[in-house]
Computed example of a mutant assay.
Amino acid sequence: MSRPENSLGNALRGWRARITTEDVGLPATRRRRTAGLRREELAHLAGISTDYLLRLEQGRSQRPSRDVVASLARALQLSTDETCHLHLVAGLRPPTPPTIPHQMPPGVQRLVSRWGNIPVGVFSASWTLLTWTSMWAALLGDPSLRSPEERNLVGAVFNEPSDTGRPLFPVEQSTPEFKAALVVDLRITHGAYPHDEDFRMLIDEVMGNSEEFRELWSTPALGSRLGGHKRLRHPLVGEIRLDNDVLKVPDHDVRIVTYTAEPGSSDEEKLEYVRIAATQTTLPLSSG
């Protein structure tokens, strides 16, 4: 009979090998025969006995408690995905994050700061706009003039339009395909953050305002194609067609939304005209 695979032990040994004493604030020691932390060092950081860690790594113990797994994940400095994997190989359900993150990852912020000539917006998993480039504001209207609640795409798409102003997202967001894809993505978010009260309130509000949303929410559909070709009408250049891409950053659960034009096209010329005009004056909000 073949020996059962020791997934938990293999994972722990691999992660232990990549961590150095400097990574965890331990004093450096003489040259080591193997890379990474010693077993007794990891055990100390995780608050468990060296013997127990040995048994976990050798596969003689394969069902650690949730507290032990959480301690090992912290000591090993695991990413979100790695922490989920550790729970799975330990026979546990991965932890559920309490709330949707609304912080901008530093790497994403650096990317956005370098994309000033491209309309780029970064959204949370609940589709609230977190940050944007100057070209996003020039093309779609300045989000800084709106309240945080008005910067949520879900409300803008499904709630009744306000009489007090023009929409902040004037692109072709009303197509059935886009709405269905958006709701699929929202259901994924709901499954990932079942305890987020703000998100639940958002869904309840849209449920109460939109029969279309209620029907889509109850429809068991998979797949979420949020990008594609979009069309908008800008006050300076008229109709402009753009390619829309949605990039997800899993560890921080944000969505990077970009609008670009086909090189050499009249739409690229229009987008460039909008960029130049934005440097000279404040544009009115697009009317859709």
Rank of each mutant, 00 (worst) to 15 (best):
N117W: 07
L139N: 04
P94I: 05
E40Q: 10
E211S: 04
L8T: 03
S2V: 13
D67I: 11
V122K: 00
P220S: 02
R39Q: 14
P98V: 14
G264W: 12
A46T: 05
P250F: 03
Q58L: 12
L271M: 10
L226K: 04
L140G: 00
L283S: 02
D243S: 09
G47K: 09
P143Q: 03
L45D: 01
S61Q: 12
A138E: 12
E41T: 09
I203C: 13
P194M: 04
P119H: 08
S287N: 14
L139R: 06
L45F: 04
Q280A: 15
T164A: 08
L236F: 04
P167F: 00
L168C: 06
D185T: 05
S162V: 09
L8K: 06
L26W: 07
E272Y: 03
D67P: 00
R66W: 00
G59E: 05
L222I: 04
F123T: 04
A46N: 02
S49T: 01
I203A: 06
D253T: 00
D185I: 00
L88E: 15
A192V: 13
T219R: 15
L232F: 06
R231S: 15
N152K: 10
A221S: 10
H87W: 15
P97S: 01
H87E: 13
D253P: 00
D267R: 06
E5H: 14
I118P: 00
R114W: 07
G227Q: 10
W136E: 10
Q280F: 14
L283E: 12
A277Y: 10
P94Y: 08
P64I: 07
P143D: 08
G191R: 15
M104W: 03
V237W: 10
E205F: 01
R93T: 14
T189W: 07
L285K: 00
V274R: 05
V249N: 00
T21M: 10
E41F: 09
G238Q: 09
Q173T: 15
R200W: 01
R151D: 01
I203H: 02
N10F: 01
S2L: 13
G228H: 03
L76Q: 02
L37S: 02
R32I: 06
R225K: 15
T21E: 15
T131F: 01
L153I: 08
T258R: 05
M207F: 13
D253N: 11
V112A: 02
D185S: 14
G155A: 06
I48A: 12
I276E: 15
Q103C: 06
A125D: 05
L285S: 01
G208R: 07
A90F: 06
P176I: 03
A125S: 11
V237I: 14
E205W: 08
M207A: 11
N152C: 10
R55M: 08
T133Q: 03
E160Y: 05
G9S: 13
R60H: 03
L216I: 02
S113K: 11
G36W: 03
L86A: 11
P95G: 09
R255T: 07
L45P: 00
G228Y: 02
F123Y: 15
L72W: 07
D81T: 09
L283G: 04
R151Y: 07
S124C: 10
I48E: 04
P220W: 02
P284N: 09
D23F: 07
L168G: 03
R166D: 14
L242Q: 05
V89Y: 02
W115Y: 09
